[in-house]
Design a protein around this nucleic acid. Structure first.
Lengths: 219, 219
DNA sequence: TGAGCTATATATAAATA
DNA sequence: TTATTTATATATAGCTC
């Protein structure tokens, strides 16, 4: 109930790096939340897929993803069974290992390997990875000598792989998310334990989501 | 100067899928632009890296990326010369070819090759690509047989490559962009011509930015 | 498709708890 | 750090061109 109100209300600011660190941190948190909310809304309103990664000033990674949401979200909330056999990708194994301790890693590894089993059955991802790899072997050669044809081939293979992975990640994400279609995962930072920053309570969802986050980060 | 103003001004809407298709398209365009702007601001204000992909209702992909911008933006605006020899990546060649016609392709190819010359000199990207490629050869082997060590190695190589490419793209983007540090590129959709959707007037910037866009798409 | 316009809905900068 | 509260800066829904 203090009566001094020197400069209340939103002030205009210049879009340039914020100098004061504490201030920057606050702004980052608020705007990141706002950005994720906007993304969520766009995704919902237009029924489109969105994926994004934001690295905090402390180098932690926050990711948001929203595949063809509504139908799947509804299906999940109503408890309907997922039509296609869900399988996850490979990337999260690689990425997830970064911050996890050894035990966690083993747990994750076991989990991933199980998922790989299912994947191998359908074979889609592995096949595509091999295809990509074959194409990428071109990179060993001097770039100047690459045939346009080879480049086209490489691009196609990568694009195909990307689509498949994204699709699968999406499936799983939707199946695992309980409330808001966005969440934060930490992954890339030098410190931090996997899971401590999760804003969802389903570890599996985090793991899978991390997969997609990783998919973007490696490039 | 018509005098009928039945329902001017912003109306409140429910966050749910928009039924009317034309309406949805408009909302998508506006909100996508807004989202990118917000991302750009967050990136600038907090000096953080952001990457995001948005698929349009027609399945076109719009991507936004922003590595450590501020310092470079400032450097660009103040006209200071870029410290490291700017060079572009390789990906845009691959991606760019998609929609361009043959002539455009040749132009781009020539341009890229010139850039590759500079790159070869510094060698950074090529070396890293080769490193990644070496690691990725692991993919040929059954995933189950991969050593954790190898996975770690692969991840590291990819991450390193990503950073380098992103950095270089930033350099060039910043140097080429005149106003807003964001723009839209079309890339993944089945149709569309490269360039028709660019929201900047500098073809070079578009090309380079496309590089980063591609970097996100291939995963 | 975009590109404005207007009037409102929202996001948020600062101060504060 | 996280949550409120204000007062304002922005984003945008619905229209028109």
């Amino acid at each position: 109930m203090v009566n001094k109100k020197p400069a209340m209300g939103r002030q205009k600011i210049k879009i340039e790096k914020i100098a004061k660190k504490s201030h920057l941190q606050v702004t980052f948190s608020k705007r990141r939340a706002g950005l994720f909310k906007k993304a969520s809304e766009l995704s919902t309103l237009c029924g489109v897929d969105i994926a994004m990664i934001v690295f905090s000033p402390a180098q932690k990674a926050f990711s948001f993803g929203h595949p063809s949401v509504d139908s799947m979200m509804h299906r999940f909330l109503t408890g309907s069974p997922p039509p296609p056999p869900p399988s996850s990708g490979l990337h999260q194994l690689i990425e997830t290992r970064r911050d996890a301790n050894v035990h966690e890693q083993n747990m994750q590894l076991a989990q991933i390997l199980n998922q790989l089993e299912a994947e191998k059955k359908n074979g889609e991802v592995l096949d595509q990875m091999r295809k990509v790899n074959r194409s990428q072997c071109c990179w060993e050669a001097p770039i100047e000598e690459l045939e346009l044809h080879e480049l086209e081939q490489l691009r196609g293979a990568l694009e195909e792989l990307k689509k498949t992975v994204a699709k699968q990640v999406n499936n799983i994400l939707i199946q695992s998310t309980s409330s808001l279609p966005f969440l934060a995962v930490n992954g890339v930072g030098e410190v931090g334990n996997l899971g401590t920053k999760l804003e969802i309570d389903n570890a599996s969802a985090a793991l899978h989501f991390n997969n997609f986050a990783y998919a973007q980060k490696i490039c």
